[in-house]
Amino acid sequence: MAETAYGGARPYGRIREGLRAYRLITAMWIRSTMAYRASFAMTTLGNFAATALDFVVILLMFSRIDALGGYQLPEVAFLYGLSATAFGLADLALGSMDRLGRRLRDGTLDTLLVRPAPVLAQVAADRFAVRRLGRLVQGVCVLGYALSALDIAWTPLKVAMIPLMLLSGGAIFCSVFVVGAAFQFVAQDASEVQNSFTYGGQTLLQYPPSIFAKELVRGVTFVLPLAFVNWLPALYVLGRPYPLDLPAWVAFTPPLVAAGCCALAGLAWRAGLRSYRSTGS
């Protein structure tokens, strides 16, 4: 159902309105977190350590080998850093959306529906957790190491690809979070399915595409376009071939793919919310 308060015909106004509500609510959660500083410090550190383990495993692997799927450690670290940072951004922004199922079960989603702000923004900001910075920082560290260790002939275009990948990748992961939350309107207990695509997707992208089966690579290129987070653009930066036969310009399409994903996620969210408002369950 079109919520015309800020204009279904004026989506721009709705987005601004949503961002405003998101900012207001996250500020409240940050203040709440600061009520328990020690716990906050500990969980942020834990968040950092838990995600760092993934990279430690890669280091352990490289203690026994020189190349994985034909990629050297700095190259794998590059893929890892891009994937982890892009995901870290999305996780920080929307990582608590899987709590929607709980709100549906205990009926507290209704308290958000009587507020004059878009529900998506309110759910996205719900339980905003600053400790998720730990994951983001860890990703940035690995990316920093990779950039210093890589031997690349940098061009302005290749340099510009880095922020472009992080932002587009973050947006792609954000839309996965939103679709996952929308799915919970249908299956309230299924929040873990979303983990397969978010955390699972991030793990997949940490490794070079050359080690995976062609069908899997095709799946994450054409069906669930995670390959646009880092694989396609990063392989251009690294000057390596993509396992699938794709034209070179595809490496520059992540922003378009991200925009498409966000639009689809928005539609999925709308459908989910509409089904909730017609069934009340």
């Binding site: 159902m1 919520e3 015309t4 308060a5 800020y6 004059p116 878009p118």
Partner: peptide, 9 residues
């Protein structure tokens, strides 16, 4: 149901 946010005010 159509103008939830306007009503909310």
């Amino acid at each position: 149901s159509r103008e939830r946010t306007r009503l909310a005010q």
